[in-house]
Amino acid sequence: MIIDTHLHLIDLERHSYPWLADVPALNRDYSYELYEREARRVGIGAALHMEVDVAEAEIEAETETVRRISRFPQSLVLGAISACRPESEAFPAFLDRQRANPVVKGFRRVLHVMPDDLSESARFRDNIRRLGGTGLPFDLCVLPHQIPRAIALCDLAPDVQFVLDHCGVPAVKDRETHPWAAHVTEIAKRPNVVVKISGVVAYAEPATWTVADLRPYVEHAIGAFGWDRVVWGSDWPVVTLGGTLSTWVAATHALVAGCSVEEKDKLLAGNARRVWRLPAMS
């Protein structure tokens, strides 16, 4: 079974997504029903919803939407990785509310589209430290040149579990490894960080990419972190910029074809259960 740790759902009638105006290919509804149909066919048995950078005033409303979907009969959705604003003075009260909400499994603040120094403010760092001991991981969505800033954040909050999204966003299309590879190796030295094998299809050449194009990036990330600190995500529907959910699942299986059953299980489900404290599933 696969646990998808990076599902996005887009509902334009319920929520506002300011960034979608600049991404017309994604600026439409992507419903749970559409995802579920394909996900079940490719062996996905559970999923965590990843926040979709809704307008700030709608963050908690998005979580409520996820809660509603999680209560569908036999829903794949186990919980929400909520958006947050650690730079805000209102964060402590927000965190208290989310800790009382069982659907919330973690947090993310999108950083790759924000000023590089956002995570360096004293308030941001102090608020991230508040996650220590909560069991709620923080996803890091950063560009390769921002990884050193993410490392600093991980070092300042050693009791917080961090998740590096999308293999650290390598430039797959351009076949670049610098500075990405060295930075991934460095952040992997931090025991409080795991890496998410996700997103790479969207960074590849849409019409021509092959498994061989993805392999150097996926294998470097897994090699740097080791099998106990890797999780898998679909990044649906962003994955559709470079293929389909089915294509990415097939590519994943090809990438790990020579690995042991135990290693595959850690990547595809076992580690996710541990990191987000998810129930065991058959």
Rank of each mutant, 00 (worst) to 15 (best):
D4G: 00
D4V: 00
T5Y: 02
T5A: 05
L7N: 00
L7C: 00
L7S: 01
L7Y: 00
H8S: 01
H8T: 02
L9Q: 05
I10Y: 04
L12M: 10
E13N: 14
R14A: 15
R14N: 12
H15C: 10
S16G: 08
Y17R: 01
Y17S: 02
W19L: 01
W19I: 01
A21Q: 14
A21C: 09
A21I: 06
D22L: 08
V23W: 09
L26D: 01
N27D: 09
D29E: 06
Y30G: 07
Y30K: 03
S31E: 07
E33C: 00
E33K: 03
L34F: 08
L34H: 11
Y35F: 15
Y35E: 11
Y35V: 11
Y35T: 11
E36Y: 04
E36N: 10
R37C: 13
R37G: 10
E38W: 06
E38A: 14
E38Q: 14
A39T: 01
A39Y: 00
A39N: 00
R40E: 08
R41E: 14
R41P: 02
R41L: 13
R41H: 12
V42E: 13
V42T: 11
V42A: 05
G43M: 03
G45C: 11
A46F: 08
A46H: 04
A47N: 03
L48D: 02
L48I: 10
H49F: 15
H49C: 11
M50I: 15
V52L: 11
V52I: 11
D53G: 09
V54L: 03
A57E: 15
E58F: 10
E58L: 11
E58G: 12
I59V: 14
I59T: 12
E60V: 10
E60K: 08
A61R: 13
A61Q: 15
A61L: 13
A61V: 12
E62R: 08
T63N: 15
T63R: 10
T63S: 15
T63F: 07
T63L: 04
T63E: 11
E64K: 12
E64F: 08
T65D: 13
V66Q: 08
V66E: 07
V66Y: 08
R67H: 13
R68H: 09
I69Y: 09
S70H: 09
R71P: 05
F72Y: 14
F72D: 08
P73K: 09
Q74I: 04
Q74K: 12
S75I: 07
S75P: 10
V77S: 07
V77H: 04
L78Y: 03
G79N: 02
G79R: 01
